[in-house]
Write a protein that binds this DNA or RNA. Structure first.
Length: 414
DNA sequence: TCTGGGGTCCTAGGACCC
DNA sequence: TCTGGGGTCCTAGGACCC
């Protein structure tokens, strides 16, 4: 007996923009973009004009002169997303939240209570629309991969159930770009070989697929074509890295610039690590040069890092290394810091005399003093907000055009 | 098409150990 | 002394996703 299409993928439609239209009824039915200088999210009315995320504001205005720009209501996004997840949680405890606007559900244990997967999908959509006021699209299938493709096909504001007997029939006419893991580069490579649909992909010899797609993607595609996707819906996986980046146009990498930007980035990253009671052994920096070419440098240490000063210093050394290796590049346009190889950093450890990242420099605080300073700053910020206090040259630096509240909340755009 | 920010996963080469 | 294979970790780059 065949298992039913018990995996659901729920995806909120144009999430940020839909929230803005919910909050301000005068925006409903009109082309809007969330963001100031650039478009972070566009309503479907705006997308009809070709406006999409990651587009500059003036370009969007060119395409759609009536476009209305609105600022973002960030805490509302999180609150409404939590409400939606709450509705979903009424139907099954097996929920894997992938991002602020997207989740997988396994309803195999719920069908005896709520009916078929299709009925559950319809009920979720109805409740989210009536109780919260947001459109959500849902795909249902036997596997996560297929359910996600189904929800993309269902957009906007639809429901698509892929019955097990009709999986290949559903899949084969669809464009290869819907396959998870096939982006613009691979899509172009496939197009060069005359492959545009998933059906064409499935019927090309698997060894040649692996040859030019790479083994990992090749076997993934093979598994999709053969409908053997064994990934389960998993609850709450923890992040494996924490990072931040800042783009600032072309600038000369003066020591002043490096200190200001890296200080700001390290402050964000280390603060988030501490908030999660985590620390990381590997520090990676990325430097992007004027021509969009970028390089990375990383170092892995014995002791995990979570203090702002140590992270700033480590990042500075790594960036210096990257710059030294490319003496012909005069200007840079982006800096990034990421910390990975994360370990738990129990609060208990804050009181031990020997503490992580004990790198000591003349005239600067020791490791334990750094922890103490960071935690005082964290505490004040929790009470009075981020800008209340910070390291000199960090709190007041205004590098990067994107306000901090916009960061961390990327919405997908298709 | 002039490009924002936070992540994941994979590959390949080299160092090092057994 | 030389050679070899396997495993693990680190580093750098790239593609992709939301």
């Amino acid at each position: 007996m065949e298992p039913g299409p018990n995996i659901l993928h729920a995806d909120l439609d144009a999430f940020y923009a839909s929230v803005e239209q919910l909050l301000d009824p005068s925006l409903r039915g009109r082309p809007i973009a969330v963001g100031g200088g650039g478009v972070l999210a566009a309503s479907y009315e705006a997308r009809a004009f070709g406006v999409h995320g990651a587009m500059s504001g003036w370009r969007a205005k060119q395409l759609c002169p009536d476009l209305i720009f609105v600022g973002g209501h960030f805490s509302e996004y999180q609150r409404l997303s939590d409400l939606v997840m709450g509705v979903i949680g009424d139907f099954t405890p097996l929920v894997q939240r992938i991002s602020i606007d997207e989740a997988f559900l396994d309803v195999s244990g719920s069908t005896h209570l709520f009916g078929s997967p299709g009925a559950i999908g319809a009920a979720i959509r109805r409740r989210v629309r009536e109780e919260i006021g947001l459109p959500v699209s849902i795909g249902a299938a036997r596997t996560k991969h297929l359910a996600k493709i189904a929800s993309q096909v269902a957009k906007p504001n639809g429901l698509v159930v892929v019955e097990p007997a009709r999986e290949l029939e559903f899949l084969h006419p669809l464009p290869v770009g819907l396959v998870w893991g096939i982006g613009p580069v691979t899509q172009q490579r496939l197009a060069d070989r005359g492959i545009y649909t998933i059906g064409q992909l499935a019927s090309s010899p698997s060894d040649s697929l692996e040859h030019f797609l790479g083994r990992a993607l090749g076997s993934k595609v093979g598994a999709l074509a053969a409908n053997v996707d064994h990934r389960r819906v998993q609850q709450n996986a923890r992040a494996g890295s924490v990072g931040a980046q800042s783009a600032f146009g072309k600038k000369f990498p003066t020591d002043e610039l490096l200190r200001a930007v890296l200080g700001h980035l390290a402050d964000r990253v280390a603060g988030r690590l501490r908030a999660k009671h985590r620390a990381g052994r590997t520090v990676t920096v990325r430097v992007r040069f004027a021509g969009m070419k970028s390089v990375t440098r990383s170092i892995t240490r014995g002791e995990p890092v979570a203090t702002t000063l140590t992270l700033t210093e480590t990042a500075h050394e790594l960036v210096q290394r990257a710059l030294n290796a490319h003496p012909s590049e005069a200007t840079i346009s982006l800096l990034a810091i990421s910390v990975s190889n994360l370990v738990d950093q129990p609060v208990l450890q804050l009181e031990l005399p020997i503490l992580p990242d004990e790198a000591v420099r003349p005239g600067s605080p020791t490791g334990s003093a750094r922890w103490a300073v960071d935690h005082s700053i964290d505490a004040v910020r929790r009470k009075f907000g981020r800008t209340a206090v910070g390291y000199a040259g960090v709190a007041l630096s205004e590098h990067g055009s994107v306000p901090d509240e916009f960061r961390e909340l990327a919405e997908h755009e298709l």
